[in-house]
Design a protein around this nucleic acid. Structure first.
Length: 279
DNA sequence: ATACCGACCTGTCAGC
DNA sequence: TGCTGACAGGTCGGTA
């Protein structure tokens, strides 16, 4: 479900609501678990942790934790036990902040009870999401699309024989772009999804760089795209789906030239483009 | 290296 | 009213 703009929106909401709070205790479901770290490790790392910062890295939500006063044994311990809780929402993952009395949704896999009395819950029907903890300095690889400059962006793809869309989706290159925003950025840049990266000119790369940043910024400003069930940490839907120019518009007229939008399958993903506007 | 495919899961919707 | 199949924001591992 969530790509960079959705994860950014959720992360901002979480940062606003749980920064400074402390995780008192953790419940982890017993069903098949979307855990990358062992449940015991996750629980023991989270419990007693004070959330000092919530930020995004690619499509990951990262909670920076430090030991709360009650658990810290000595001043030396203070630096020793910093940790990070890393959440990847997969296709259908959600993070919600609720009152304890709120009904527990089906497919709830983790509940973190906070010192403020509220709960932070992870819900994920398809279980493609992943939870993990790490000592510190989590790095998913790749560069942030909103931070990368033109030259570095071009260098990421130049000479690659892979279709440009596959390269855009490769999180080890650019982190955060997913299926919707890859299609939307390629439309704005006038490049077909199947074009080999190696066959793209420098001028086109500059256009693509601008298009990727533009589409991500616009989407963040509208709170992301709500296709079926995406909601942010406050339960609010995004509105960028109303701005999609090709994604999900197969057979509908191109907003520029009225040609019917085509859909093809590339790397197993639906890919939408205008055969006239994109070359 | 790269590319295609299925696998991982559940839910929803269109069509018969 | 069912049933079946296609499809869904993501990633991974196997195979050619």
């Amino acid at each position: 479900m969530p790509e960079l703009p959705e994860v950014e929106t959720i992360t901002r909401g979480l940062a606003r609501r749980v920064s400074g709070d402390t995780i008192d205790s953790v419940w982890i479901g017993s069903k098949p678990q979307p855990l990358k770290s062992p449940a015991i490790t996750i629980a023991s790392t989270l419990e007693g942790g004070r959330i000092v910062r919530v930020h995004r890295a690619g499509k990951h939500i990262v909670f920076d934790l430090e030991p709360s006063n009650g658990k810290r044994k000595s001043s030396r311990d203070r630096t020793a036990r910093h940790a990070q809780w890393i959440v990847h929402l997969g296709m259908t993952g959600r993070m919600v902040v609720t009152e304890p009395a709120a009904e527990i949704a089906k497919h709830t896999h983790l509940i973190a009870r906070l010192a403020s009395g509220r709960e932070l819950r992870f819900i994920d029907p398809r279980m493609f999401g992943k939870l993990s903890v790490s000592p510190a300095g989590f790095d998913p690889g790749g560069v942030e699309p909103l931070e990368v400059g033109e030259d570095q962006f071009t260098a990421l793809f130049r000479g690659r024989k892979t279709p440009i869309k596959s390269a855009l989706l490769n999180q080890k290159l650019l982190r955060g772009v997913g299926n919707i925003y890859a299609d939307e950025a390629l439309f704005r840049a006038g490049i077909r999804p199947r074009r080999r990266a190696a066959a793209i000119t420098r001028a086109q790369f500059l256009k693509l760089h601008a298009a990727v940043q533009e589409v991500l910024r616009e989407a963040i400003a509208l709170g992301g795209s709500s296709i079926s069930d995406y909601v942010d940490a406050d339960g609010e839907e995004g509105f960028f789906q109303l701005q999609h120019r090709v994604y999900g518009r197969e057979g509908e007229p191109c907003l520029v030239c009225r040609t019917a939008i085509k859909r093809v399958v590339l790397a197993g993903r639906s890919s939408h483009y205008c055969p006239k506007c994109q070359k």
